[in-house]
Simulated assay, not measured.
Amino acid sequence: SATQQTFLWQHTSAVVPGFTGDTVAELPLECTYDFEVKAAKYLLALDGGTVPLRFLFSGTVFGRGNQSFSVRQVPWDREQPFDMPVSVWRDLIRLHYPGTGWVRLTREAIDALAAYRSARGLLGFDEAITELLAAAPELR
């Protein structure tokens, strides 16, 4: 039976200073808590284990030539798999968003919530949402 694979693409870039032999370089990767983004929904749904990542490399390598410098393209087949523990993402989210979540709202919804909050003298959006939820008949 065929297995279905889901691919989530993310692009990033880095410039690595010159070196001889092997080197280690940091590669910045964005990590989001926006549940409108498929990767965040996927990671939140996992209880544990690892997430299979595949890093695909491309770019240009500049080096010293015999009389000047050389230029080579990184071959398109250069890749590196990595199994990232789900706990890494969860720890990162706890570090940057301690005790909170993230919800994207339309501008109209934010304005309406701000007006509700202001009309009732509430200090924050959390209080406004909590009050609105407490008033919902289906939640009582």
Score class of each variant (00 low, 15 high):
P98C: 01
T6G: 06
E127Q: 15
S13D: 14
E26D: 11
S118F: 00
L43P: 07
T130S: 12
V24A: 11
Q5M: 02
L122P: 03
A39C: 02
L95D: 08
A109N: 14
F62S: 14
H11N: 15
F55T: 04
T106D: 13
D47G: 15
L27F: 11
E108G: 08
L53N: 09
V15I: 13
V51A: 13
R90F: 02
R94I: 05
Q4V: 05
P81E: 08
L44W: 07
K41A: 13
F55E: 09
G121T: 11
Q5T: 10
T23E: 07
G59D: 14
P98R: 02
F7H: 01
T50G: 09
L113T: 04
T32L: 04
P17G: 12
T130R: 12
T6E: 00
T130Y: 02
D77C: 10
L53R: 05
S118E: 11
K41M: 12
L43Y: 06
L43C: 09
Y42R: 07
R94W: 00
T20H: 14
P98Y: 03
T130I: 07
A135Y: 01
W9C: 05
W9N: 14
L95E: 10
A14Q: 07
E127G: 07
C31S: 09
T100R: 13
V37H: 11
L56I: 08
N66K: 08
E131N: 07
K38C: 00
L95T: 08
I110D: 13
G101L: 02
C31R: 05
G21C: 06
P85C: 06
A40F: 05
V86M: 04
R90K: 14
L139V: 03
V16A: 03
P17M: 03
L122K: 00
I110G: 04
S58Y: 08
G48V: 03
S58V: 01
S68P: 01
S68G: 15
P81H: 11
R64L: 15
L53F: 15
D47W: 01
I129E: 02
F69A: 11
F69L: 09
G59Q: 11
T20P: 07
R72I: 00
F125D: 11
L132R: 10
S70D: 12
V61G: 13
